[in-house]
Amino acid sequence: MRMVLSIGLSAYCNFQTFRPSDFQTFRLSDLQTFRLSDLQTFNNYKHMKKLLLLLGIGFLLLQAGLADLYGQGRLLRRLQDEMERRAVEEIFGKEEERPGTHDTGNTSTTRNRRGSGLEQSIPDVGLHIDEARSSYASGSYSPAKSALRQALWGVELEMGKQVLASLPEAVGGMTYVEKDDRVSSTGIGFVGMLIQRRYAGKDDMELNLSVGNDSGLFGLARIAAASGLYMQDTEQPNHKQIRFQDHNAYIQYDDYDGYMLSVPFGQASILMLQGVNFDTEAQFMSAAGQFNVQNIKQKLGEQ
């Protein structure tokens, strides 16, 4: 090893005096005549040839040796593992794995097997307004606010249901999935009210409708749109601005989500349609055309 390193170092130092043609005159017997003392007379080309060749051979031997050692180590480890496994089986017997007995890390043995969910109650708006009035009059502001939230939720729930009732029951051969109709609201304007409906039932196609209303976020989206954030871009051909029922709208496509149409309307509302597995933009837009933005706007009291 010391010899290889020495040769390498010396070869590097004298590289400028070496010529490639020297390899042609090399003989194997040169290896036998090599001595460390040759390093001191390193200026002639003959010795240089030997040194370089030795360096190469030494490097190859080193690589081969390491690979061999590594392979042997791996084999030994596998043998050791196998012997340990067999020894354990010999002492304790072979464990038979039964289906469904995988350890999931959950130590709880009790699972819920009964229950009919939560009772769906529609807030009584009038009652909650009266409650808010009396709480406020007595100086209990926190309960007053809570009652107002309930009243607000009741009103928004009715608005959402009215919008859902006004939507078509079938679109492009798909019918709406009644159990997936949803109206949600936080009672605050940050998120606002969200109305959702899903259409399915024709092959693997799906159309998801979302109407967002009274949300600060949708207002921000309009500002972004007005500032040209969603303008067409030749570099990104998968989204473009279009006109949809007298509203500026944005359509985009990606291979994972399919088609997505966004139609901001009113002061802070948006209609979003997502079409999954539609063949063409025209097919998707034909389905989208069956929703009346003006009608939704009217139901939400938007301008």
């Binding site: 708006v125 107002l148 009103v155 928004e156 009215q162 939400l300 009291g301």
Partner: peptide, 11 residues
């Protein structure tokens, strides 16, 4: 409903 909602938000 929109009028009711607005009034409730104001309250």
């Amino acid at each position: 409903l929109e009028g009711a909602r607005f009034a409730l938000q104001q309250a």
